[in-house]
Design a protein around this nucleic acid. Structure first.
Lengths: 195, 195
DNA sequence: TCTGCCATGTAATATGTTACATGATTGT
DNA sequence: ACAATCATGTAACATATTACATGGCAGA
Protein backbone atom coordinates (compact mmCIF):
# COMPACT_ATOMS: atom_id res chain seq x y z
CA UNK A 1 0.00 0.00 0.00
CA UNK A 2 2.82 2.44 -0.73
CA UNK A 3 1.94 3.90 -4.10
CA UNK A 4 -0.87 6.15 -2.83
CA UNK A 5 1.46 7.47 -0.14
CA UNK A 6 4.20 8.05 -2.67
CA UNK A 7 1.76 10.14 -4.70
CA UNK A 8 0.56 12.07 -1.66
CA UNK A 9 4.16 12.89 -0.78
CA UNK A 10 4.91 14.02 -4.31
CA UNK A 11 1.78 16.20 -4.42
CA UNK A 12 2.59 17.79 -1.08
CA UNK A 13 6.04 18.65 -2.34
CA UNK A 14 4.40 20.23 -5.37
CA UNK A 15 0.86 20.04 -6.83
CA UNK A 16 1.10 18.39 -10.23
CA UNK A 17 -0.77 16.80 -13.09
CA UNK A 18 -0.61 13.09 -13.85
CA UNK A 19 2.06 13.44 -16.48
CA UNK A 20 4.20 15.68 -14.32
CA UNK A 21 3.98 13.08 -11.58
CA UNK A 22 4.98 10.40 -14.06
CA UNK A 23 8.09 12.39 -14.92
CA UNK A 24 8.97 12.82 -11.27
CA UNK A 25 8.56 9.07 -10.79
CA UNK A 26 11.17 8.65 -13.48
CA UNK A 27 13.62 10.81 -11.57
CA UNK A 28 13.82 11.78 -7.93
CA UNK A 29 10.99 9.75 -6.46
CA UNK A 30 11.57 6.92 -8.90
CA UNK A 31 14.98 6.32 -7.35
CA UNK A 32 13.26 4.46 -4.55
CA UNK A 33 9.69 3.98 -5.76
CA UNK A 34 8.94 3.43 -9.44
CA UNK A 35 5.53 3.63 -11.10
CA UNK A 36 4.15 3.84 -14.62
CA UNK A 37 1.72 6.49 -15.78
CA UNK A 38 -1.13 3.97 -15.84
CA UNK A 39 -0.63 3.18 -12.20
CA UNK A 40 -0.47 6.86 -11.38
CA UNK A 41 -3.68 7.80 -13.19
CA UNK A 42 -5.56 4.92 -11.65
CA UNK A 43 -4.34 5.85 -8.18
CA UNK A 44 -5.10 9.55 -8.68
CA UNK A 45 -8.70 8.59 -9.41
CA UNK A 46 -8.90 6.51 -6.23
CA UNK A 47 -7.29 9.19 -4.08
CA UNK A 48 -9.73 11.75 -5.41
CA UNK A 49 -12.70 9.47 -4.66
CA UNK A 50 -11.39 8.90 -1.13
CA UNK A 51 -11.30 12.64 -0.54
CA UNK A 52 -7.52 12.71 -0.07
CA UNK A 53 -6.78 14.93 -3.05
CA UNK A 54 -8.69 17.38 -5.23
CA UNK A 55 -8.41 18.42 -8.87
CA UNK A 56 -7.71 22.08 -9.51
CA UNK A 57 -7.99 23.84 -12.88
CA UNK A 58 -11.30 23.84 -14.69
CA UNK A 59 -14.54 21.98 -14.22
CA UNK A 60 -14.24 20.35 -17.65
CA UNK A 61 -13.49 16.64 -17.34
CA UNK A 62 -12.24 16.56 -20.93
CA UNK A 63 -9.88 13.85 -22.01
CA UNK A 64 -6.82 15.64 -23.27
CA UNK A 65 -7.00 18.46 -20.71
CA UNK A 66 -4.37 18.96 -18.12
CA UNK A 67 -5.57 18.25 -14.59
CA UNK A 68 -3.66 19.44 -11.54
CA UNK A 69 -4.16 17.88 -8.15
CA UNK A 70 -3.53 19.13 -4.63
CA UNK A 71 -3.60 17.30 -1.30
CA UNK A 72 -6.53 17.87 1.07
CA UNK A 73 -6.19 17.86 4.89
CA UNK A 74 -7.51 14.29 5.04
CA UNK A 75 -4.72 13.22 2.68
CA UNK A 76 -2.06 14.83 4.80
CA UNK A 77 -3.46 13.09 7.89
CA UNK A 78 -3.45 9.75 6.13
CA UNK A 79 0.18 10.25 5.15
CA UNK A 80 1.20 11.34 8.63
CA UNK A 81 -0.36 8.22 10.07
CA UNK A 82 1.41 6.01 7.57
CA UNK A 83 4.81 7.52 8.33
CA UNK A 84 4.51 6.80 12.04
CA UNK A 85 3.03 3.32 11.59
CA UNK A 86 4.71 -0.06 11.49
CA UNK A 87 5.71 -1.94 8.38
CA UNK A 88 8.26 -4.72 8.35
CA UNK A 89 11.04 -4.66 5.78
CA UNK A 90 10.12 -6.90 2.89
CA UNK A 91 12.33 -9.94 2.38
CA UNK A 92 14.85 -9.61 -0.43
CA UNK A 93 13.63 -10.64 -3.87
CA UNK A 94 16.40 -10.44 -6.40
CA UNK A 95 16.35 -12.28 -9.73
CA UNK A 96 20.13 -12.06 -10.13
CA UNK A 97 20.75 -13.89 -6.86
CA UNK A 98 18.20 -16.45 -7.93
CA UNK A 99 20.02 -16.93 -11.22
CA UNK A 100 23.30 -17.46 -9.39
CA UNK A 101 21.70 -20.13 -7.28
CA UNK A 102 20.28 -21.72 -10.42
CA UNK A 103 23.72 -21.50 -12.02
CA UNK A 104 25.06 -23.58 -9.16
CA UNK A 105 22.79 -26.33 -10.48
CA UNK A 106 22.73 -25.97 -14.28
CA UNK A 107 26.07 -24.27 -14.91
CA UNK A 108 27.34 -20.71 -15.23
CA UNK A 109 27.20 -20.45 -19.00
CA UNK A 110 26.84 -16.80 -19.99
CA UNK A 111 26.66 -15.55 -16.42
CA UNK A 112 29.98 -13.66 -16.21
CA UNK A 113 28.96 -11.40 -19.10
CA UNK A 114 25.72 -10.65 -17.35
CA UNK A 115 27.55 -9.86 -14.12
CA UNK A 116 29.82 -7.44 -15.98
CA UNK A 117 26.77 -5.80 -17.50
CA UNK A 118 25.13 -5.36 -14.11
CA UNK A 119 28.37 -4.03 -12.67
CA UNK A 120 28.46 -1.31 -15.32
CA UNK A 121 24.81 -0.41 -14.68
CA UNK A 122 25.35 -0.08 -10.93
CA UNK A 123 28.49 1.97 -11.43
CA UNK A 124 26.55 4.32 -13.65
CA UNK A 125 23.75 4.67 -11.13
CA UNK A 126 26.24 5.37 -8.37
CA UNK A 127 27.87 8.07 -10.46
CA UNK A 128 24.47 9.65 -11.05
CA UNK A 129 23.74 9.72 -7.33
CA UNK A 130 27.16 11.20 -6.66
CA UNK A 131 26.38 14.02 -9.07
CA UNK A 132 23.05 14.66 -7.39
CA UNK A 133 24.70 14.77 -3.99
CA UNK A 134 27.28 17.24 -5.18
CA UNK A 135 24.56 19.43 -6.62
CA UNK A 136 21.88 19.25 -3.92
CA UNK A 137 23.81 18.54 -0.73
CA UNK A 138 27.16 20.13 -1.46
CA UNK A 139 28.43 20.99 2.04
CA UNK A 140 28.39 18.60 4.95
CA UNK A 141 25.46 19.18 7.29
CA UNK A 142 26.83 22.25 9.06
CA UNK A 143 25.78 22.48 12.65
CA UNK A 144 22.77 24.61 11.92
CA UNK A 145 24.44 28.02 11.87
CA UNK A 146 22.16 31.01 11.87
CA UNK A 147 22.76 31.33 8.14
CA UNK A 148 20.98 28.07 7.27
CA UNK A 149 17.37 29.24 7.40
CA UNK A 150 14.69 27.63 9.52
CA UNK A 151 15.41 24.58 11.63
CA UNK A 152 12.61 22.77 9.79
CA UNK A 153 14.27 23.06 6.45
CA UNK A 154 17.51 21.71 7.84
CA UNK A 155 15.82 18.61 9.25
CA UNK A 156 13.96 17.99 5.99
CA UNK A 157 17.23 18.29 4.07
CA UNK A 158 18.89 15.84 6.42
CA UNK A 159 16.15 13.31 5.73
CA UNK A 160 16.31 13.74 1.97
CA UNK A 161 20.06 13.44 2.09
CA UNK A 162 19.76 10.23 4.11
CA UNK A 163 17.46 8.74 1.49
CA UNK A 164 19.96 9.55 -1.22
CA UNK A 165 22.75 8.04 0.88
CA UNK A 166 20.80 4.80 1.14
CA UNK A 167 20.60 4.66 -2.65
CA UNK A 168 24.33 5.27 -2.90
CA UNK A 169 25.15 2.68 -0.24
CA UNK A 170 23.06 0.10 -2.06
CA UNK A 171 24.75 0.77 -5.39
CA UNK A 172 28.17 0.64 -3.78
CA UNK A 173 27.29 -2.65 -2.15
CA UNK A 174 26.36 -4.18 -5.50
CA UNK A 175 29.45 -2.80 -7.20
CA UNK A 176 31.68 -4.36 -4.58
CA UNK A 177 29.81 -7.63 -4.53
CA UNK A 178 29.79 -7.98 -8.31
CA UNK A 179 33.49 -7.17 -8.45
CA UNK A 180 34.16 -9.90 -5.93
CA UNK A 181 31.90 -12.33 -7.79
CA UNK A 182 33.75 -11.69 -11.06
CA UNK A 183 37.16 -12.14 -9.47
CA UNK A 184 36.43 -15.81 -9.03
CA UNK A 185 34.47 -16.21 -12.25
CA UNK A 186 37.22 -15.23 -14.66
CA UNK A 187 39.16 -18.34 -13.74
CA UNK A 188 36.28 -20.60 -14.84
CA UNK A 189 34.31 -18.69 -17.47
CA UNK A 190 32.14 -21.48 -18.84
CA UNK A 191 29.59 -23.79 -17.27
CA UNK A 192 31.34 -26.27 -15.04
CA UNK A 193 28.79 -28.24 -13.11
CA UNK A 194 30.32 -31.52 -14.14
CA UNK A 195 28.76 -34.34 -16.19
CA UNK B 1 8.93 -14.18 -14.45
CA UNK B 2 11.21 -15.48 -11.74
CA UNK B 3 8.96 -17.63 -9.59
CA UNK B 4 8.77 -20.56 -12.03
CA UNK B 5 12.56 -20.53 -12.28
CA UNK B 6 12.89 -20.39 -8.53
CA UNK B 7 10.72 -23.49 -8.32
CA UNK B 8 12.63 -25.29 -11.07
CA UNK B 9 15.88 -24.58 -9.22
CA UNK B 10 14.47 -25.83 -5.95
CA UNK B 11 13.13 -29.00 -7.58
CA UNK B 12 16.45 -29.70 -9.28
CA UNK B 13 18.22 -29.41 -5.96
CA UNK B 14 15.71 -31.86 -4.56
CA UNK B 15 12.35 -33.21 -5.83
CA UNK B 16 9.66 -32.07 -3.41
CA UNK B 17 5.97 -31.69 -2.76
CA UNK B 18 4.22 -28.35 -2.65
CA UNK B 19 4.37 -28.04 1.09
CA UNK B 20 8.02 -29.01 1.23
CA UNK B 21 8.72 -26.31 -1.33
CA UNK B 22 6.76 -23.83 0.75
CA UNK B 23 8.98 -24.62 3.72
CA UNK B 24 12.12 -24.20 1.67
CA UNK B 25 10.80 -20.85 0.46
CA UNK B 26 10.58 -19.85 4.09
CA UNK B 27 14.25 -20.68 4.62
CA UNK B 28 17.13 -21.00 2.21
CA UNK B 29 15.50 -19.99 -1.04
CA UNK B 30 13.24 -17.51 0.69
CA UNK B 31 16.29 -15.49 1.73
CA UNK B 32 16.35 -14.04 -1.76
CA UNK B 33 13.02 -15.07 -3.28
CA UNK B 34 9.93 -15.33 -1.13
CA UNK B 35 6.65 -16.99 -2.12
CA UNK B 36 3.49 -18.18 -0.39
CA UNK B 37 2.07 -21.65 -0.72
CA UNK B 38 -0.76 -20.39 -2.93
CA UNK B 39 1.69 -19.00 -5.43
CA UNK B 40 3.65 -22.21 -5.34
CA UNK B 41 0.70 -24.53 -5.95
CA UNK B 42 -0.57 -22.38 -8.79
CA UNK B 43 2.85 -22.26 -10.39
CA UNK B 44 3.36 -26.02 -9.95
CA UNK B 45 0.16 -26.56 -11.92
CA UNK B 46 1.37 -24.32 -14.73
CA UNK B 47 4.82 -25.87 -14.84
CA UNK B 48 3.27 -29.32 -15.07
CA UNK B 49 0.98 -28.23 -17.90
CA UNK B 50 3.95 -26.73 -19.75
CA UNK B 51 5.76 -30.04 -19.55
CA UNK B 52 8.59 -28.65 -17.42
CA UNK B 53 7.93 -30.82 -14.40
CA UNK B 54 6.15 -34.08 -13.63
CA UNK B 55 4.31 -35.43 -10.62
CA UNK B 56 5.67 -38.64 -9.13
CA UNK B 57 3.91 -40.81 -6.55
CA UNK B 58 0.55 -42.27 -7.33
CA UNK B 59 -1.98 -41.71 -10.08
CA UNK B 60 -4.60 -40.54 -7.61
CA UNK B 61 -5.20 -36.82 -7.88
CA UNK B 62 -6.83 -36.76 -4.47
CA UNK B 63 -6.95 -33.56 -2.51
CA UNK B 64 -5.14 -34.28 0.72
CA UNK B 65 -2.56 -36.58 -0.94
CA UNK B 66 1.07 -35.69 -1.06
CA UNK B 67 2.33 -35.01 -4.54
CA UNK B 68 6.03 -34.98 -5.37
CA UNK B 69 7.39 -33.26 -8.47
CA UNK B 70 10.56 -33.69 -10.45
CA UNK B 71 12.03 -31.58 -13.25
CA UNK B 72 11.88 -32.85 -16.84
CA UNK B 73 14.61 -32.19 -19.43
CA UNK B 74 12.53 -29.39 -20.97
CA UNK B 75 12.42 -27.71 -17.56
CA UNK B 76 16.17 -27.89 -17.15
CA UNK B 77 16.64 -26.37 -20.60
CA UNK B 78 14.27 -23.55 -19.80
CA UNK B 79 16.19 -22.80 -16.62
CA UNK B 80 19.56 -22.93 -18.36
CA UNK B 81 18.35 -20.43 -20.94
CA UNK B 82 17.05 -18.11 -18.25
CA UNK B 83 20.34 -18.12 -16.35
CA UNK B 84 22.32 -17.04 -19.40
CA UNK B 85 19.77 -14.46 -20.57
CA UNK B 86 19.56 -10.74 -19.89
CA UNK B 87 17.50 -9.10 -17.21
CA UNK B 88 18.11 -5.59 -15.95
CA UNK B 89 18.27 -5.00 -12.21
CA UNK B 90 14.93 -3.68 -11.01
CA UNK B 91 14.91 -0.15 -9.61
CA UNK B 92 14.85 0.06 -5.84
CA UNK B 93 11.40 0.05 -4.25
CA UNK B 94 11.61 0.51 -0.54
CA UNK B 95 8.70 1.69 1.63
CA UNK B 96 11.00 2.82 4.45
CA UNK B 97 12.87 5.21 2.17
CA UNK B 98 9.54 6.47 0.93
CA UNK B 99 8.42 7.07 4.47
CA UNK B 100 11.56 9.04 5.23
CA UNK B 101 10.92 11.21 2.22
CA UNK B 102 7.33 11.70 3.40
CA UNK B 103 8.62 12.51 6.88
CA UNK B 104 10.61 15.35 5.36
CA UNK B 105 7.24 16.86 4.43
CA UNK B 106 4.84 15.92 7.26
CA UNK B 107 7.25 15.50 10.15
CA UNK B 108 9.18 12.65 11.74
CA UNK B 109 6.71 11.81 14.46
CA UNK B 110 7.17 8.17 15.48
CA UNK B 111 9.87 7.48 12.92
CA UNK B 112 12.88 7.00 15.22
CA UNK B 113 11.15 4.13 17.01
CA UNK B 114 10.44 2.51 13.68
CA UNK B 115 14.07 2.95 12.63
CA UNK B 116 15.23 1.28 15.83
CA UNK B 117 12.84 -1.57 15.20
CA UNK B 118 14.15 -2.08 11.67
CA UNK B 119 17.71 -1.89 12.93
CA UNK B 120 17.04 -4.73 15.36
CA UNK B 121 15.42 -6.82 12.61
CA UNK B 122 18.35 -6.36 10.25
CA UNK B 123 20.83 -7.15 13.00
CA UNK B 124 18.97 -10.35 13.71
CA UNK B 125 18.92 -11.33 10.05
CA UNK B 126 22.62 -10.65 9.74
CA UNK B 127 23.32 -12.83 12.77
CA UNK B 128 21.29 -15.63 11.20
CA UNK B 129 23.29 -15.41 7.98
CA UNK B 130 26.51 -15.41 9.96
CA UNK B 131 25.45 -18.64 11.65
CA UNK B 132 24.63 -20.21 8.31
CA UNK B 133 27.97 -19.19 6.91
CA UNK B 134 29.81 -20.67 9.86
CA UNK B 135 27.89 -23.91 9.46
CA UNK B 136 27.84 -24.35 5.65
CA UNK B 137 30.92 -22.51 4.46
CA UNK B 138 33.23 -22.83 7.44
CA UNK B 139 36.67 -22.66 5.82
CA UNK B 140 37.67 -20.01 3.31
CA UNK B 141 37.50 -21.27 -0.27
CA UNK B 142 40.70 -23.31 -0.29
CA UNK B 143 42.45 -23.31 -3.59
CA UNK B 144 40.75 -26.44 -4.77
CA UNK B 145 43.09 -28.96 -3.19
CA UNK B 146 42.72 -32.52 -4.34
CA UNK B 147 40.88 -33.25 -1.12
CA UNK B 148 37.90 -31.08 -2.01
CA UNK B 149 35.99 -33.42 -4.27
CA UNK B 150 35.02 -32.69 -7.85
CA UNK B 151 35.73 -29.31 -9.39
CA UNK B 152 32.02 -28.93 -10.13
CA UNK B 153 31.00 -29.17 -6.52
CA UNK B 154 33.54 -26.55 -5.57
CA UNK B 155 32.23 -24.11 -8.16
CA UNK B 156 28.64 -24.68 -7.06
CA UNK B 157 29.66 -24.04 -3.47
CA UNK B 158 31.41 -20.85 -4.46
CA UNK B 159 28.20 -19.60 -6.13
CA UNK B 160 26.00 -20.50 -3.19
CA UNK B 161 28.44 -18.81 -0.84
CA UNK B 162 28.37 -15.68 -3.00
CA UNK B 163 24.60 -15.54 -2.82
CA UNK B 164 24.77 -15.75 0.96
CA UNK B 165 27.43 -13.03 1.02
CA UNK B 166 25.11 -10.75 -0.95
CA UNK B 167 22.45 -11.24 1.69
CA UNK B 168 24.95 -10.46 4.44
CA UNK B 169 26.27 -7.40 2.62
CA UNK B 170 22.74 -6.08 2.21
CA UNK B 171 21.91 -6.55 5.89
CA UNK B 172 25.18 -4.93 6.92
CA UNK B 173 24.44 -1.99 4.66
CA UNK B 174 21.05 -1.44 6.29
CA UNK B 175 22.48 -1.81 9.79
CA UNK B 176 25.08 0.85 9.09
CA UNK B 177 22.67 3.16 7.34
CA UNK B 178 20.04 2.91 10.07
CA UNK B 179 22.67 3.51 12.73
CA UNK B 180 23.77 6.65 10.93
CA UNK B 181 20.16 7.75 10.45
CA UNK B 182 19.47 7.36 14.16
CA UNK B 183 22.59 9.26 15.18
CA UNK B 184 21.02 12.46 13.83
CA UNK B 185 17.47 11.61 14.86
CA UNK B 186 18.05 11.36 18.62
CA UNK B 187 18.82 15.08 18.74
CA UNK B 188 15.39 15.96 17.33
CA UNK B 189 13.02 13.11 18.23
CA UNK B 190 9.68 14.70 17.33
CA UNK B 191 8.24 16.06 14.11
CA UNK B 192 9.94 19.32 13.27
CA UNK B 193 8.89 20.44 9.82
CA UNK B 194 7.91 23.86 11.12
CA UNK B 195 4.88 25.97 10.15
C1' DT C 1 -14.88 -39.75 17.70
C1' DC C 2 -12.62 -35.70 18.27
C1' DT C 3 -8.69 -32.74 17.86
C1' DG C 4 -4.75 -31.22 15.58
C1' DC C 5 -1.82 -31.11 11.93
C1' DC C 6 -0.38 -32.29 7.18
C1' DA C 7 -1.39 -31.25 2.50
C1' DT C 8 -3.62 -29.31 -1.44
C1' DG C 9 -6.42 -26.28 -3.24
C1' DT C 10 -10.24 -22.06 -4.44
C1' DA C 11 -11.81 -17.31 -4.33
C1' DA C 12 -11.43 -12.58 -3.94
C1' DT C 13 -8.74 -8.73 -4.00
C1' DA C 14 -4.75 -5.74 -4.71
C1' DT C 15 -0.96 -4.40 -7.28
C1' DG C 16 1.93 -4.12 -11.35
C1' DT C 17 2.77 -4.49 -16.54
C1' DT C 18 1.89 -4.09 -21.50
C1' DA C 19 -0.60 -2.60 -25.32
C1' DC C 20 -3.59 0.36 -27.15
C1' DA C 21 -7.10 4.46 -27.68
C1' DT C 22 -8.46 9.30 -27.68
C1' DG C 23 -8.43 14.22 -27.44
C1' DA C 24 -5.76 18.75 -27.29
C1' DT C 25 -2.00 21.76 -28.79
C1' DT C 26 1.74 23.37 -31.49
C1' DG C 27 4.58 23.89 -35.39
C1' DT C 28 5.15 23.22 -40.51
C1' DA D 1 -4.13 19.70 -43.55
C1' DC D 2 -0.68 17.13 -41.37
C1' DA D 3 2.68 15.36 -38.07
C1' DA D 4 4.54 15.40 -33.66
C1' DT D 5 3.90 15.75 -29.03
C1' DC D 6 1.41 16.49 -24.75
C1' DA D 7 -1.94 14.53 -21.79
C1' DT D 8 -5.33 11.45 -20.03
C1' DG D 9 -7.26 7.43 -20.12
C1' DT D 10 -9.15 1.84 -21.11
C1' DA D 11 -8.47 -2.98 -21.46
C1' DA D 12 -6.28 -7.15 -20.84
C1' DC D 13 -3.27 -9.61 -18.52
C1' DA D 14 0.27 -11.11 -15.02
C1' DT D 15 1.66 -11.42 -10.45
C1' DA D 16 1.12 -11.19 -5.42
C1' DT D 17 -1.57 -11.21 -1.07
C1' DT D 18 -5.22 -12.58 2.08
C1' DA D 19 -8.79 -15.34 3.60
C1' DC D 20 -10.98 -19.38 3.46
C1' DA D 21 -12.26 -24.48 2.10
C1' DT D 22 -11.48 -29.47 1.80
C1' DG D 23 -9.61 -33.91 2.52
C1' DG D 24 -6.31 -37.29 4.84
C1' DC D 25 -3.99 -39.12 8.71
C1' DA D 26 -2.36 -39.91 13.50
C1' DG D 27 -2.91 -40.03 18.22
C1' DA D 28 -5.62 -39.03 22.76
Amino acid sequence: MSLPHAILTALLERPSSGLELTRRFDRSIGYFWSATHQQIYRELGRLEQSGYIRALTSARPARGRKKEYEVLPAGREELTGWVSGREDPKPVRDPLLLRMRAAAVVGTDGLPDELRRHLALHERQLAEYTDIEARDFAAEPRERTEASGTAGRTEADRLRHLVLRAGMDLERMWVEWLTEALRGASAAPAGSDGP
